[in-house]
Design a protein around this nucleic acid. Structure first.
Length: 582
DNA sequence: GCCGTTTTCGGCCCGACTGTTTTCAGTCG
């Protein structure tokens, strides 16, 4: 069973949890948490690299001891310390730590005094009235824990970014309409464009904090008020999404925005830099002693500690601070940089809108080209195209192009990569197209070696331009298939193939980590909507957000190329001369 | 457990809210 970075990260996180329950030195706990984060966000597979005989580079915060444990876990899936700690604690107890209102101290009391170590046991103990008898607990805590345990047993914990956006936008508009309310901004992981968010962190500038808080908790979607002070409040909406509001003074907006955008790891790293300069950063500003020297804008916060502005999507402590210090921050791609969309469906297969409507919608969004890429015949459910229908659609596109002057329709296909690595349509049919987007839509459960070989075989076909949604994952719904992304990236580079960053909010596939891996290897990314309806072209926004998290500049994005250069790049992937019978 | 042009020891980011331990610990972001 191969061990992946996520497994190593999980092991470190569990060690940290168990150490906390053991009342260990909090800085030791932090070291394990940091190690979990660092390993989890690496752009290469640790176990694979070690197995190949290579050594690990020095990783920040991972010293001799943790580095030994990384190797131990990579080889065995666990380590002696973890097993020893697990032997001392009942299974499931660490999950209690993730419930709101429970930290190590209180979990320890629940466990030692009541024998409670699972969420279900906690729910029972809280509903029986046993929790309130414990030292440090009362009736109020008991009720909150009952709610938290019941909620955990019944609902999902994180919201996809696009779903959170549907709740955020009207709530923000409602808050803005309040008397004396100025700017209202959603910070946190939402602003960093993370693919899922656990809650919304909202900042509001307001004259009267109390009135704004009152308006906030009075919103008609609010199901529960978790906390309510003079400058902060927390609520849960009926959909289960938690929203936190902070009311800040106008002159502190930059500092507050910076502080509450995070990430936590980024903030901690930057505050260390500030401290080395004799400065203190908090949500009110940047201070030298008691004197406030910056904080009205985020730019002023960065400037005060000698850094250029770092875009929110980069703030993960993944090298952006060092890059900023060296003056080497990337200029990130923007939605306006996209000149086209290279993955779009129509009613001919499983899309909902007609070819002309999709093209018109793309044109209205300012795109200069759009590729029609229907499913191929294997996907019966989607009424996939065979060679004859594909040819007929090609003729239709020719006629359409003849009367369009401000957008070009490209002929493409989203062809299925079959289990043996062959493609679902004959090379001769593919060779007539402008581009071929290849995709895995079945046989997800092949072994890593088989899946990798299958996809690489497909990429070796004469006509193959872009690998669609390269890991096949559906966020919270389907795990990515097991594939050696490093090998895929290398193959893409050698053949001039681009990898797709599928912008559908439930896919966002590539991940940010893989995006950056591809970028570092010089592989172009196609940020594509995979739209099945006119409205879904707007999903490009989420793809761009993910791409920015993956450090992409315009130069790394295939569909940021002007049409002539795009055609040139695509032509190199369509080796029609290698196809017989054309 | 990590780290080092103030350091190989003694530090390790910072403030608000809650509930309950009547002066603050625990938790959270």
């Amino acid at each position: 069973m191969p061990v992946h970075n996520a497994d190593i990260a999980r092991a470190f996180d569990e060690i940290a949890d168990l150490l906390e329950l053991d009342d260990a030195n909090p800085f030791r706990v932090r070291a394990y948490r940091n190690a979990a984060r660092v390993v989890g966000e690496l752009r290469f597979d640790v176990a694979q690299r070690l197995a190949s005989g290579a050594t690990l580079p020095k990783l920040p915060g991972i010293g001799p001891d943790l580095s030994t444990k990384v190797r131990e876990i990579a080889a065995t899936g666990t380590c002696a310390l973890l097993e020893r700690l697990q032997g001392r604690a009942p299974a499931g107890v660490t999950e209690l730590l993730s419930l709101p209102g429970l930290g190590p101290k209180r979990v320890r009391v629940l466990w030692h005094e009541l024998g409670v170590h699972t969420v279900e046991q906690l729910r029972r103990a809280a509903s029986d009235g046993r929790v309130r008898t414990l030292p440090g607990f009362g009736a109020a805590s008991e009720a909150k824990l009952l709610d938290a345990a019941s909620a955990r047993l019944s609902r999902a914990r994180r919201f996809k970014l696009a779903v959170a956006a549907q709740y955020a936008a009207p709530y923000v508009a409602y808050l803005r309409a309040g008397r004396g309310v100025g700017e209202v901004i959603v910070a946190g992981s939402y602003r960093r464009m993370k693919e899922t968010v656990g809650d919304l962190d909202v900042l509001a500038i307001a004259d009267d904090g109390g009135a704004t808080i009152a308006r906030f908790v009075g919103y008609d979607e609010v199901a529960d008020v978790l906390a309510r002070g003079t400058t902060r409040a927390s609520v849960v909406l009926r959909c289960g999404l938690q929203v936190d509001l902070r009311v800040v003074a106008k002159e502190s907006l930059g500092a507050a925005l910076y502080y509450f955008t995070g990430s936590k790891a980024h903030n901690i790293a930057v505050r260390l830099i500030a401290r080395e300069r004799g400065l203190k950063i908090n949500e009110y500003g940047v201070f030298r002693g008691t004197r406030r020297i910056a904080g009205d804008t985020e730019e002023s916060v960065f400037a005060a500690i000698g850094l250029p502005y770092i875009a929110p999507e980069l703030r993960e402590d993944q090298g952006e601070i060092e890059a900023a210090q060296r003056g080497e921050l990337p200029v990130l791609v923007e939605l306006a940089d996209l000149r086209g969309d290279l993955h779009v469906h129509t009613r001919a297969t499983d899309g909902r809108d007609a070819l002309t409507d999709m093209v018109d919608a793309a044109r209205r969004r300012g795109l200069r080209y759009v590729a029609i890429t229907e499913h191929s015949r294997r996907l019966h459910m989607a009424h996939g195209l065979d060679a004859a229908r594909l040819a007929r659609q090609g003729a239709q596109i020719d006629r359409l192009n003849a009367r369009l002057d401000d957008i070009t329709v490209l002929k493409g296909i989203e062809v299925d990569i079959l289990e043996d690595g062959s493609l679902d349509l004959p090379d001769a049919a593919l060779a007539k197209l402008d581009l071929v987007v290849g995709a895995v839509h079945g046989n997800f459960d092949l072994s890593r070696a088989e899946q990798t070989a299958r996809i690489i075989a497909a990429m070796d076909r004469p006509c193959f331009s872009i690998l669609a949604h390269p890991t096949g994952r559906l966020i919270d719904d389907r795990e990515p298939y097991d594939v050696d992304m490093q090998a895929i990236v290398r193959k893409a580079r050698s053949r001039g193939i681009a990898l797709e960053l599928n912008a559908q909010p439930e896919r966002l596939d590539l991940t940010d980590v893989h995006c950056r891996m591809a970028r570092d290897e010089g592989v172009l990314i196609s940020i594509a909507s995979d739209a099945h309806a006119v409205d879904e072209l707007a999903d490009l926004e989420f793809g761009v957000g993910q791409g920015r998290r993956g450090w992409l500049s315009r130069a790394h994005v295939l569909n940021a190329l002007p049409l002539p250069q795009l055609r040139k790049a695509l032509a190199a992937t369509m080796r029609a001369d290698a196809v017989r019978g054309t």
